[in-house]
Design a protein around this nucleic acid. Structure first.
Lengths: 265, 265
DNA sequence: CGTTCAGTTGACCATGATCAAGAGTGGTGG
DNA sequence: CCACCACTCTTGATCATGGTCAACTGAACG
């Protein structure tokens, strides 16, 4: 089926994560939305938790769209040291560099069981050809991801342990909120403490103590992989968090309660 | 003209830094090269050292091409903490996001006096229209820059102080080499110790002691803003440095002495 | 039920921060 | 020409954040 295929007019099922994600940036036309939904609806590949989707040194041939679950991009240092450089959640794309770089210099590992849709060059090119706005949305996706990388550099470079952890939790909560994966003040957080440590440049022992401090301060409730942030502004303050780098248009100004989002041009 | 065909024939004036930089990736056609050289040759804007080219929160309207000098991209934390997220040297582009993001979330400061060429949207679009390979080269530029960001995350997250500093020096040396800004084993390094500290997440005092250790180990010679690396493989080993992330095609396999570079397809 | 994995806690240690003072250097104005 | 100032580099003493090592708990699962 051609990705040009035009979807329904009648306002349909809620947008999938990819459409929500890219829709952060531009109000995508119905046609572009339909194409993206068609991608999301394709049969997906499943990866078991703790297994890799792709490994350092390999040459990717398809773009992956995260459909379900959490994954992380990480790099290893040979002597076993591992640094997570970002987390991937539904709606995220990776390997947009298939056209460009021959080898990737990181691995992607599944944190939970994940489902990804593989999209090959031809389909992507056809979609972009038909709806050039998609290309712009993809640029946006890459640039926001890069902006997150920069903020992580700041996180690791100048923040204290408590700030780092609080910052990570803020970031993930807002990102999850932007794809509709939060309920009220809560979200799933399927990370174990050593994952958080590998992302924050700290040991799991220290993460444990840091989380306890955040809990005792009443800033977070975290049990059974479920995170609740009773007062996100307080957590942001503790993290020295400035959400600008996420470039979330809709959500940064939208009240917490759900309601029709006003879409700026 | 096929992009596979490597320009010249008659060896023309040496390519400018932008052409050298983008030429890392694809053998640009003569036409594309000419366009890029024309950009480089434009009148440039000069910024005094320690002043900002652009500030956090501003909306950029042009792409900047670094023509001379060193600059850095950095973020401030409000309470004065500063983290440098990368260094810009001749041939680097910034603000390729003018089409996409309305506000930037970092500042760019001049470390030395710098000269930048401002290229506006229309000129860029015209160049890409005429030579589509340029768009691909720009993607490559962004992706490599992003890859550097990831490596910096690793640097700050898991490396020790000595490894971090050694890693930064390796990276900058190789990048300078790729634009022809090294002579033998030496290059200019106009950073003061607190710049290195702000890039490595360490204090300037500790940078001082770390540099002394590297000097005493014979790994570097650094005096009067001039860096010499007598044995780069030794420094790489000390840094746990893997150059893959720089995606330098020509240089990674080329012997140190100058000679005709074999260009892999 | 035993095994494995995540979380927790305590004791001790080390890397790197902080604070402070002094030396070297270059630029500027009297 | 010299005095002064600002900036960078250097060094020492002390401190604290976070790492290491080790043991134990509790839950999940075959």
């Amino acid at each position: 089926m051609s990705p040009l295929h035009h979807g329904d007019g009648a306002l349909a099922p809620p947008p999938g994560p990819l459409a929500m994600r890219l829709g952060e940036y531009i109000a995508l036309s119905d046609g572009a939305l339909a194409v993206l939904e068609a991608f999301s609806a394709r049969p997906s590949r499943k990866i078991v938790e703790k297994h890799d989707l792709i490994r350092q040194g390999e040459t990717p041939h398809v773009v992956y769209l995260m459909k379900r679950g959490w994954a992380c991009r990480y790099k290893l240092l040979g002597d076993g040291r591992r640094q997570i450089v970002d987390f991937l959640i539904p709606g995220d794309l990776c390997e947009l560099n298939i056209y460009i770089l021959s080898q990737i210099d990181y691995s992607i590992g599944a944190i939970t069981p994940i489902e990804v849709v593989e999209i090959d060059r031809e389909d992507f090119e056809a979609a972009i050809e038909a709806w050039p706005e998609i290309l712009k949305a993809l640029w946006w996706h890459e640039l926001v991801n890069k902006s997150c990388h920069r903020e992580w550099i700041v996180n690791l470079g100048v923040r204290t342990a408590t700030e780092r952890v609080a910052h990570l939790l803020c970031e993930m909560f807002l990102r999850l909120e932007s794809i509709g994966a939060t309920t009220g003040y809560s979200c799933e957080l399927p990370l174990i403490q050593s994952d958080i440590g590998d992302a924050c440049g700290l040991t799991s022992v220290h993460i444990n103590r840091t989380l306890q401090r955040l809990r005792q301060a009443g800033l977070i409730i975290l049990r059974n992989r479920m995170l609740t942030i009773p007062d996100i502004d307080a957590l942001k303050a503790a993290a020295v968090f400035n959400p600008d780098y996420l470039h979330l248009r809709r959500l940064t100004r939208r009240p917490r309660a759900k309601g029709p989002a006003e879409l700026p041009v």
